[in-house]
């Protein structure tokens, strides 16, 4: 028995809390619903998690530099609304060229969302506004704009091809959003682990003064982190719009919490400087898994929000426990 406990402790120290949470979640939901542990459902989980995965990866960059981005939800919303509106307008003007209007919509929506990230970056890196205030402020600005543009109602009128390709399409049996996410995972993994720029994110969060003395452009790094975070959230917004077939101002409201939760569960330090991309992907998948499991187990949606909050706090507590274990363990 004590051997088992020792082994578990060791695993906790080595691997972090995520594998344990995953195991527990899988066990519980398999018990609660027969449909949970089926190949079909698991693919479903992966597909549903793509949006959160994208946002969480962006959020990770902000966290790595020692900040965070509370405006990711609004970026989704604004991207969706602007993208859908311009796509619909372009399509109305030239009904024959669906592809061109899709392109127009993607560019307009992506630009709108990324702009919020860029403004965040300027405020935080150049004007020294705290990430909390800056992104909270921009969250309000973006959400207000999204509501103003739509009057609070969904935007219709996009070409059906948009949803067919980016929402429901498949390449070799893999859903298009999943493929896009995988490509982005690879790109970001490469940036973080194989380029000087990737190291800079860790360095700025690790010790910004040391980074500066080592000749790193800390302002540019901070700026890029938030711009990139905005870009990722914008891509998620475009894909989600395709899936929903409408532009909506109220998507993404839970994204700030969920993306930070995914990162923290994955061991990204809230103080900056620590975190691995592959773990963040699993963190996002885990949250998707829990949501899917709760749906199957017919847990009420309001209660689900409660569970996500509890999970976030639990993950932080468990991580503290882990750190204490690291300090006390002999081996």
């Amino acid at each position: 028995m004590s051997k088992i406990i020792h082994f578990l402790k060791l695993a906790l120290v080595r691997l972090g809390v995520l594998p344990f949470l995953l195991l527990i979640a899988v066990a519980i939901f398999t018990f609660l619903s027969d449909n949970f542990l089926t190949g079909r459902n698991l693919i479903n989980v992966v597909r549903q998690s793509t949006y959160l995965t994208l946002v969480s990866m962006g959020q990770m960059f902000a966290l790595l530099t020692g900040g965070f981005d509370l405006s990711v939800g609004t970026i989704l919303a604004l991207t969706s609304v602007v993208g859908a509106t311009s796509m619909a307008m372009a399509y109305a003007a030239m009904p024959d060229s669906a592809m061109l209007s899709i392109l127009v919509g993607i560019l307009a929506g992506g630009a709108a969302g990324t702009t919020i990230g860029i403004v965040n970056g300027i405020g935080i890196s150049l004007l020294n506004v705290s990430p909390f205030m800056m992104s909270l402020g921009m969250a309000s600005v973006g959400f207000g704009l999204a509501l103003y543009l739509t009057g609070g109602t969904p935007v219709y009128g996009m070409p059906t091809e948009y949803g067919d390709i980016f929402g429901f399409g498949a390449i070799y049996g893999l859903p298009v959003p999943v493929v896009i996410t995988m490509v982005l995972i690879i790109i970001l993994y490469f940036i973080l682990n194989w380029t000087p720029a990737g190291r800079y994110f860790y360095a700025v969060g690790g010790n910004i003064k040391a980074a500066r003395l080592s000749g790193i452009n800390t302002r540019l790094t901070l700026f890029s982190a938030y711009a990139l975070c905005g870009l990722m959230a914008a891509i998620a917004g475009l894909l989600l719009t395709a899936r929903l077939d409408t532009g909506e101002a109220n998507i993404g409201a839970t994204m700030p919490l969920e993306s930070i939760a995914a990162c923290v569960i994955a061991g990204v330090s809230l103080r900056g400087g620590i975190g691995r991309l592959e773990n963040v992907v699993f963190g996002a998948l885990f949250i998707g898994l829990v949501q899917n499991g709760m749906n199957l187990a017919r847990i009420e949606s309001y209660l689900q929000i409660v569970v996500i909050g509890v999970l976030l706090i639990l993950a932080v507590v468990a991580d503290q426990l882990r750190l204490r274990l690291v300090a006390t363990m002999r081996n």
């Binding site: 360095a203 690790g206 010790n207 003064k209 003395l213 000749g215 400087g273």
Partner: peptide
């Protein structure tokens, strides 16, 4: 101002020369 304490020695050492 010298080191990133939570990163390993290797990353610290090559930081100025990336």
């Amino acid at each position: 101002e010298g080191l990133m304490m939570m990163r390993n020695a290797r990353e610290n050492i090559v930081l100025p020369a990336l």
